[in-house]
């Protein structure tokens, strides 16, 4: 009984502190993007997310560009910006802060989809992308 009480208060505490620090999880963001796209979460595809990450596109200046140009091919490895600043790994397995702040996630999708694809990403693409990264072990 006491154990149970302790456990549930600990769980509550964990939830409360997680809520105070960061309101989102990869799973809650996937749910949000699936809803926005009008599909069930089960319709998000890790394979499509991986393809989005790896596909090369003609950049704004004609130079080929892909997500991996800065993030490297391995989402568990840190990447590097063009001026040499470290980019923390994309995969939550290597970087627990990833996909925990909805505004930050939206900001970087907006910027990077424009840079790589020359357009915004759809809600489905964003959901696929997170679906892929959250199953990287």
């Amino acid at each position: 009984m006491i154990e149970r009480f302790l456990f549930s208060s600990l769980a509550l505490l964990a939830m409360a502190s997680a809520g105070a620090l960061a309101a989102e999880t990869p799973a809650s963001l996937m749910a949000r993007y699936a809803q926005e796209a009008g599909v069930p979460v089960s319709a998000l595809s890790a394979a499509r997310g991986a393809a989005l990450f790896r596909t090369e596109h003609p950049g704004r200046d004609g130079q080929p560009v892909r997500c991996a140009s800065c993030h490297t091919d391995n989402p568990k490895q840190p990447g590097q910006t063009r001026v040499g600043k470290r980019i923390e790994p994309l995969a939550p397995a290597a970087n627990p802060e990833r996909f925990t702040d909805a505004a930050k996630v939206e900001k970087w999708f907006r910027r990077n989809c424009q840079d790589v694809l020359q357009r915004e990403c759809s809600a489905q693409e964003k959901g696929d992308f997170i679906a892929w990264l959250s199953q990287v072990k």
Binding site: R60, D61, R82, K107, R110, R111, N112, Q114, D115
Partner: peptide, 12 residues
């Protein structure tokens, strides 16, 4: 900022 030295760095 939307074309910040070749990159999109737009802010709210």
């Amino acid at each position: 900022l939307d074309r910040h030295f070749g990159e999109n760095a737009s802010l709210d």
